[in-house]
C-alpha cells in the first residue's frame, strides 16, 4: 500500500460565514455562494473583506501541505496562494471526513468574471477541489 495517497475533496465552496457550534463541535455554514455581485457602483478592483471556504476531504493517507489558490478562470492568472497548512491523514482512517475551513480576508477580485478557488495538496490540484465563483459588477 502506498504510504501517501492524495485526499479527495467531497465538498468545497465559499460562503458567508462558518462557525463551530460549541455544543457539538460541528461547523455551521451560512449562505453558500456560486454567484455574487460587487457593491453598487463598484465595477473593478474589489477586495472582499471576508470569505469562508469550507471543504470536506476523505481518502487521504499521509501528511500534506494544504493550500488554496485563487485564479481568474478566464485568463488563468493566479491571484494568490495561501501559506501551507500541514494536515495529517492517518492510514486506515480514510473514511474520516476532514473538514478544512479557510477564513480568507481581503480577497482581491480585479474585474467581474469567473474565479476559481483551487484546493491543493503539496502543490498538486486535488480532485474535486475547484470551487467556482461568478462575480458580477455592481
Amino acid at each position: 500500500m502506498a504510504d501517501r495517497v492524495k485526499p479527495v475533496v467531497r465538498l468545497f465552496f465559499p460562503c458567508d460565514d462558518a462557525v463551530i457550534d460549541l455544543a457539538d463541535g460541528k461547523w455551521m455554514l451560512k449562505n453558500p455562494w456560486h454567484t455574487v455581485g460587487m457593491p453598487p457602483g463598484v465595477r473593478e478592483k474589489f477586495g472582499q473583506r471576508l470569505i469562508w471556504l469550507y471543504a470536506q476531504l476523505t481518502d487521504g493517507v499521509g501528511e500534506f501541505d494544504l493550500t488554496v489558490e485563487l485564479r481568474n478562470y478566464d485568463t488563468g492568472e493566479r491571484l494568490g496562494r495561501s501559506k501551507p497548512e500541514r494536515w495529517d491523514f492517518a492510514g486506515g482512517d480514510q473514511l474520516t471526513v476532514h473538514e478544512v475551513v479557510f477564513k480568507m480576508e481581503n480577497v482581491p477580485f480585479p474585474t467581474p468574471g469567473l474565479y476559481v478557488f483551487q484546493l491543493m495538496a503539496n502543490h498538486a490540484e486535488l480532485d474535486g477541489g475547484a470551487a467556482y465563483l461568478r462575480v458580477y459588477p455592481g
Binding site: K26, L66, L70, K83, V100, V107
Partner: peptide, 21 residues
C-alpha cells in the same frame, strides 16, 4: 454517525494578492 476531524479555520490575509497582475 459522522466522523469528522475538525480544526480551527486557517486564516489567510490576501492583502498582497493580485499585486503581481
Amino acid at each position: 454517525v459522522t466522523r469528522n476531524a475538525t480544526r480551527e479555520p486557517v486564516s489567510v490575509d490576501c492583502s498582497g494578492w493580485g499585486a503581481g497582475t
